[in-house]
């Protein structure tokens, strides 16, 4: 807590670092889960597919904030005690995976059936076809949607203020209640979120262009 914004900058940057840390873990876990669950949904594995649909609907149709409360304040009742850090990345991962599952399922479904038929006709087993045809083509098509979701997860890491994890919004909120310099501090935090989101978006577009297969379109 200092006199000017410059004195508060290290604390805010530290908060941003913590936000990025839980977001990176949460996003990675949710993308991996999303690809696996999306593939299972796309393949229509009996029972598993329906169970995944229930999971997706429950997590998409309830607020992330209530999910966080459940993880942090209710689970200790049955002996599961999560630290603020664990709660933060687990909540982002479970919530995000529900959305990523749908994104990847749609991406896999959008792969032209002719590509898959051709691979199968050439004698490729179903698993190889998925790994070598559906996955590379489907994943490319999902980059924009998955990025939008990942940016949403990063922004939602601000919700972790309620469990006391030292992320950017928690730090900014603490500084504001001590100094009452609302506009400077929240403005700076907002700028940090905004720039990070913009950077992630730009990086993703670059990645997408770099990976693009000539002659294919990206679906949004």
């Amino acid at each position: 807590m200092g006199e000017t914004l410059l004195d508060d900058l290290p604390a805010l940057l530290n908060g941003l670092g913590n936000s990025l840390l839980v977001s990176a873990i949460g996003i990675t876990v949710s993308v991996v889960l999303g690809i696996a669950l999306g593939a299972a949904r796309n393949a229509g594995v009996p029972v598993l597919s329906q169970a995944i649909a229930v999971y997706v609907n429950v997590f998409r149709c309830t607020p992330l904030l209530v999910q966080i409360f459940m993880l942090y304040f209710a689970l200790p009742e049955i002996g599961i005690r999560l630290s603020p850090f664990q709660t933060s990345w687990i909540a982002l991962a479970l919530w995000g995976a529900a959305y990523h599952t749908e994104i990847f399922r749609a991406g896999f479904k959008a792969v032209p059936p002719a590509e898959i038929l051709a691979a199968r006709a050439l004698g490729m087993p179903a698993r190889r076809t998925f790994l070598d045809v559906t996955l590379p083509l489907g994943l490319r098509a999902t980059i924009p949607a998955a990025t939008t979701m990942a940016i949403g997860q990063f922004r939602s890491s601000s919700f972790m203020v309620v469990v006391g994890y030292q992320e950017l919004t928690y730090v900014a909120n603490g500084l504001v209640s001590q100094t009452f310099r609302v506009f400077e501090i929240f403005g700076m935090a907002a700028l940090m979120y905004f720039l990070t989101c913009t950077l992630i978006g730009a990086a993703s577009r670059g990645f997408e262009t770099w990976l693009r297969v000539p002659g294919t379109r990206t679906a949004r």
């Binding site: 601000s158 919700f159 900014a172 009452f180 609302v182 929240f186 907002a190 979120y193 989101c197």
Partner: peptide, 21 residues
């Protein structure tokens, strides 16, 4: 772009603390 690049909670806190000021 601005409002979509900032967390909803931050906007909420900002308005909550800024209005009295």
């Amino acid at each position: 772009t601005l409002f979509r690049g900032i967390p909803s909670l931050l906007i909420l806190l900002c308005v909550f603390f800024a209005l009295p000021q």
